[in-house]
Each structure stands twice: as structure tokens, then as C-alpha cells.
Amino acid sequence: MDAYTDKIKEISKKILSEGKVDVVIGFRKGTLGYMSEPYMAKSEKEAENLVFDCNCRMNLVNYVTNRKDKVGIVVKGCDSRNLVTHIIENKIKREQLYIIGVPCTGLADKKALLDLAEGEITSVEDDNETITIKGDGFEKKVAKSDVLQSNCKTCIKRNPVIFDELAGPEVAELEISDRFADVDEVEKMSADERWNFFGELLSECTRCYACRNACPLCYCPTCFVDESRPQWVGKSDNETDVLTYHFLRAFHDAGRCTDCGACEAACPMDIKMRYFTRKTIKDCVEKYGSEAGMELDKRPALDQYKINDPNEFIK
């Protein structure tokens, strides 16, 4: 995906110089070779710093929430769907945006890269087929498909659903046979096994809220865990409170989550909280045929209903 960088720079410079936007939100190289970081380019000169690669794991839609200025933004397929939800939910107006779409072939899993490296990584190159990891005294090539971030393996929309300009030609969408295999696996367990599975899953959570902060959907002025009237969820790392937090956060994202993977990528404890959100995605797709953020005139699944929605679970 490295090839997109030049085009992103070109578009950004153009829209900044023409005054179409006040800022372009994109990525620049990070201090670590395997992490690119969000960057706000406000001038043509700054736009020179923009990059795009398989290390752009943050969801930039997080940075446009409630902005009042005109913004250029670089989005992959999943992010663009968050942008749609943002527009629907009044977080930003379409007119404020100049959307630079990236037809995405997937991000590299941070942990997979680190496992392969034989020292500090200085750069990661991506030609859509092969990832080349370079560092002090080593260079490794690996098939991109072997190091894809887990959410990218089941991506249903690699091309942006909404954009003003694309940074490259559209790519073929994935054909996924077993989209929710991970969720299905859990569902096959007994109730007690599931309970233990999630207990284990969350055992390391310190409630640092990195997942929440990385998520463009979590924009409430006060999160429910911080509500004080009534304070019904404790703020400690009590296991019920931790579960309540992850559980209700996922419920709040039901019908809205695009499985961009920013939450897991941001987690310092490597907690797989997408097990929660993916369950809601599965249900919304299977029960209501509703994928988050696909159309500007369709609100999230829980803000809608159909008269013949599934009714079997009700006596």
C-alpha cells in the first residue's frame, strides 16, 4: 500500500493550497518502524510528511468528531464506514469533509511483525503481496496474508464507501467463507466454558480505556462507566465491573462497529475485545441484514426496526 503515499501527498497539497480544507488528517512515519502515527498537515509543506502503509492502525475518524473546520481525511474502507456513521450521528457534516479514500489491502499485525523481527524494526515495506521487515542487520520477507491484522482477514469492505478522491484504483473485495468463525467457536462452547473464556479474556484488563479512546464510536461526553447519578458500575478492576464495561461498550457499538480493529491495536495488554463487538456485528448482519455505515441514509441497526424482525426469542 506504500504506493498510495505519493497520491495522498499530491491530493493533500492540492486541497490545502486551494483552501478546500484547513487541515488534512492522515498518517506520518512513527518513531518506531512498525507504527505510523496520526498526523495533521496544515500546509503544503507539512503534507510532505504524509504517508500511508500497513502500519496505519489508528482510526482517524476519531479525530474529526465535532470539528468545526474543513477537514481532509485519509480513510480505508472500514474507516470510511465510520465516517458515514459519524455523518449520520451529527459528528461531522459531509460538506466539511474532503475524503481521500484508500483502497485497502489490509494492515499488518503489530505482534506478528515483532515476532518475526530479529531486532529493532526500522522499516516495514508493503507491496500488497509481500511485507519486508528491515532492521539492524536483518531483512525478512513474508507473505502479507500471513501477517494480516485479524480484522483485515474478514474485511467486507476494503474500498471506501464514501470519498471525494481515491489514492489508487479500487481493489478487489475479499471473498470470505467463514466470516464469524471466531464467534461461532465461542458460541459452540457450554455456558460455563463461555463464562470462563471471557473471564480469562479480560483477566489482564486494567481499564486504561485505550480501546475506548481509540474508537471513533466512543464519543459520549461522559461514558456510562463514569456516570455518577446513579453510579451503577464501579470504577475498579473488579471482574464484574470490567465485564460490564466491555459488555456495554460493545452493546453501545452494536450496529455501528465496522470492525476496524483500532481497539485491539491500541490495547497495551493485548486483550481481544473484538470478541464482544464481533458478536454484535454478527447478530446485526444475520438478524437484520444490517452492516454498519454502508449508506448515508440508514441509521444504525438499533435505531431502526422492521415489522418482521426476528421474534422467536420472545414468548
Binding site: 464467534v183 465461542v186 458460541e187 455456558a191 460455563d192 466454558e193 463461555r194 463464562w195 470462563n196 473464556f197 471471557f198 465485564l243 459488555f247 460493545a250 452493546f251 452494536a254 450496529g255 464482544f276 458478536k279 454484535t280 447478530d283 446485526c284 438478524k287 437484520y288 441497526a301 438499533l302 431502526q304 426496526y305 424482525d309 426476528p310 421474534n311 426469542f313 420472545i314
Partner: peptide
Amino acid sequence: RRKFDVLNEMLEYVGI
């Protein structure tokens, strides 16, 4: 109904 269905599924999913 939609909220209940999703919530019900999730509660069972986590082991209730």
C-alpha cells in the same frame, strides 16, 4: 425487540 435480541444474545454469549 431489536435491543432485547442483541442483548439477550450477548448475555448468553458471555456465559449467562
